[in-house]
């Protein structure tokens, strides 16, 4: 395959950089509104949460108020807010009191581990099954896969997780249902996410395979005298993988959303779990930090998909 030319790469990265900026602005604005909309006694409640109701003094409440920037005028406050945001200065969690950045550093490893495991598992499950089904459309595997994929797509991630918990840990007692970061704890949440992702990529791969196998160039490959396996390897695989990888980008929306819910279900100590907790307790600094990091993860994954497509599809290198 020819060398990747420079123009499309810089265009892709430029657009993704722009998307990252949009993420930052959206998260910044929403959290700013969030802070402004906190009710008057919010500072008191957060202080109470931190120090215990018995210990709350007006000093503590004022400290919280200052920390959150609840005083001050609109435009200046917004400018300050974004200045801090772009310096990655999210402040400290109003619940735990620890710097948000430090907490995120711990959580990020868990979330990345879970996401990578889920993506790998789904890539091992989905596309091979989809391609096998697509090579014999209407066959037993194809029909079975259609039913399985339709059922899986009708179940939200957390329900798949719930069912897995009930089946595996209760029924067989092999794997722990929930818990912290160990490999044995990783299996169920990763499988939960992978089943959802795999169901979709299996369908995409199946449809792409059917389309490619019916294409004039596939037929021409056969008529040239190539064996069925050779036609698949030379003209099938690459042409099927282009839409499958492209579609991964769309699926990453589901992955990030799934991470938020599945981490909470399995008490997996990642960013999604932290985000949900922070939203529940309206811990704005943590919300800001975690939402920003998750948004950036989404942008990075999309950029990776774009580059993979560029590498796989020589048509894009040519243009």
């Amino acid at each position: 395959m020819g060398p990747v030319s420079r123009i499309p790469v810089s265009r892709i990265l430029g657009y993704r950089l722009f998307q990252a900026l949009l993420v930052a602005v959206t998260v910044g604005l929403l959290t700013f509104v969030m802070v402004r909309s906190l009710p008057g006694d919010m500072a008191y409640r957060i202080a109470a949460g931190r120090y215990g109701y018995d210990m709350v003094s007006s000093d503590a409440a004022n400290a919280v108020r200052a920390e959150l920037g609840l005083g001050g005028g609109g435009a200046a406050a917004l400018a300050l807010w974004f200045l801090d945001l772009f310096r990655l200065d999210f402040g400290e969690s109003v619940i735990s009191g620890r710097p948000v950045l430090e907490e995120i550093r711990h959580q990020l490893g868990h979330t990345v581990g879970l996401s990578v495991a889920a993506i790998l598992l789904s890539v091992l499950l989905g596309p091979p099954l989809g391609i096998a089904a697509g090579l014999r459309p209407g066959g037993a595997l194809d029909r079975g896969l259609l039913v399985a994929a339709s059922m899986l797509r009708a179940l939200p991630h957390f329900v798949v997780g719930l069912i897995l918990i009930m089946l595996v840990s209760a029924g067989l007692g092999i794997l722990p249902a929930a818990g912290h970061g160990g490999t044995e704890n990783l299996v169920l949440p990763a499988l939960t996410l992978a089943l959802g992702l795999g169901a979709v990529s299996a369908r995409v791969a199946r449809d792409a395979m059917v389309q490619v196998a019916a294409s004039p160039y596939y037929a021409f490959g056969r008529v040239k005298g190539l064996s069925e396996a050779r036609v698949f390897l030379r003209h099938g695989l690459r042409n099927v993988s282009v839409p499958v990888v492209t579609y991964l980008g769309v699926q990453f929306v589901g992955l990030i959303e799934g991470v938020v819910v599945v981490e909470s279900l399995f008490a997996w100590p990642g960013i999604g779990h932290a985000l949900v907790h922070a939203i529940f307790s309206r811990d704005v600094p943590v919300i800001q930090g975690t939402a920003l990091v998750m948004g950036m993860m989404f942008v990075l994954l999309n950029a990776a998909v774009d580059l993979a497509c560029l590498w796989l599809d020589p048509r894009k290198q040519a243009s």
């Binding site: 294409s215 160039y217 021409f220 030379r234 282009v242 599809d313």
Partner: peptide, 10 residues
């Protein structure tokens, strides 16, 4: 239609 009979990515 040879255009369609050639693999578009090769």
């Amino acid at each position: 239609e040879p255009w369609l009979a050639l693999d578009p990515t090769m």
